[in-house]
């Protein structure tokens, strides 16, 4: 947009007609476009699969999509906060493994769930806090700080146990195995937790000053600081939130599998990053939506399911997700390049 646009801004805002509407739309909602692209891809995948297989869009399948990917969705919410500030958190997979096995071992030694569940969440918070403090107060790059978190979580998981631990606690089993049904559709408490996480995450991002500061920090950290916003607290908090989500995902996964396993979530951090990016969050920060990340999870899950249906190698999942990730990054790059030029 050039100088002419600036001088006509006053009129274009109130200006009617199709052109005015398009102008208003693009000036307001340009950042939603990548997420729309993700929705389009999801619809195309689902429609394509339904046409190809004929029995894809069933209640069972769709319900399983949420159930199987509930832990991923929880992690994606936390990761969205981090990436919107232009950070990254590599620790989520191993934090999930650690809190999962830690919880399982506490359950196994008879500790009641009212203690175990908060302990699981708090251990995730502790690792997130460590990463956040390293990033904010010691100028450590997020990549490296969260790498330390990754090592720490994975190692601690093995310190707790080298083998998987079965969980017999009735509350946890209830979380994992209960099915609320509606016709063909069903949802487990873990699925409810995942959806609630998404909703709370989206509300915090959109309707709190903290959430808006997250966006401001991602847009321009220096500006945010000069505007008098509390940048330091915000940057620490996003890693704490991601750690909390890691703990919650540990709970969800333990409930889903009925056991804790120290090898859970190896490489999951990459899946989560991929899912968040596919959902329309810019890795350079400042743009992205929690709801978009949810769409990203569904895209990921759908690709997985389709490959299952085709009886193809599971390894195709990662190849396709990798290709999709590349596609989205190139598209984002083009968008950013265009908006840079327009200034």
């Amino acid at each position: 947009m050039s100088a002419t646009d600036a001088t006509t801004t006053t009129s274009s805002a109130s200006g009617a007609g199709a052109k005015g509407m398009i102008g208003t739309f693009t000036s307001r909602y340009a950042s939603v476009l990548p997420t729309f692209a993700a929705i389009t891809i999801l619809i195309a995948l689902l429609a394509g699969a339904e046409i190809y297989f004929g029995n894809f869009l069933t209640g069972r399948n769709m319900s399983a999509l949420l159930l199987d990917n509930a832990y991923l969705m929880v992690l994606a919410v936390g990761m969205t906060f981090v990436i919107v500030t232009a950070g990254i958190d590599l620790s989520v997979g191993s934090v999930m493994a650690f809190t999962g096995i830690f919880g399982a071992s506490l359950f196994a030694s008879g500790v009641p769930f009212v203690i175990v569940i908060p302990v699981m969440l708090l251990s995730g918070v502790a690792i997130g806090l460590l990463i956040g403090v390293l990033v904010q107060y010691f100028n450590v790059q997020p990549f490296i700080a969260s790498l330390a978190g990754l090592f720490l979580g994975r190692g601690l998981a093995y310190v707790v146990s080298l083998q998987s631990i079965r969980v017999e606690d009735p509350v946890l089993l209830w979380l994992g195995s209960t099915r609320f049904t509606l016709g063909d559709f069903y949802i487990a408490p873990t699925g409810v937790i995942a959806l609630l996480t998404v909703i709370v995450g989206a509300l915090v991002m959109h309707f709190t000053r903290f959430g808006r500061t997250v966006y401001a920090v991602g847009g321009s950290e220096q500006s945010a600081r000069l505007m008098g916003l509390n940048v330091a607290r915000t940057k620490v908090m996003v890693y704490v939130i991601s750690g909390l989500c890691g703990g919650l995902a540990g709970l969800v996964l333990t409930a889903y599998t009925g056991s804790g396993y120290p090898r859970n979530g190896i490489g999951t951090e990459l899946d989560v990053i991929a899912v968040v990016v596919i959902g329309g969050t810019l890795l350079s920060g400042g743009r992205g939506y929690v709801l978009g990340s949810m769409i990203g999870v569904f895209v990921f899950g759908t690709i997985n399911t389709i490959i299952n249906f085709m009886g193809a190698e599971q390894s195709w999942t990662h190849i396709i997700v990798g290709a999709l990730l590349l596609l989205f990054i190139v598209v984002q790059r083009a968008i950013v390049a265009r908006s840079d030029r327009s200034r």
């Binding site: 991929a274 890795l283 350079s284 190698e313 390894s315 999942t317 990662h318 190849i319 990054i329």
Partner: peptide
């Protein structure tokens, strides 16, 4: 050439590479 952030550009292959090896 494309100008993608290195972390992400190599993340693509990190994700897809093992899939290729498995194939």
């Amino acid at each position: 050439v494309i100008g993608i952030q290195p972390i992400i550009a190599t993340l693509v292959l990190m994700l897809a590479g093992r899939g290729v090896a498995l194939l």
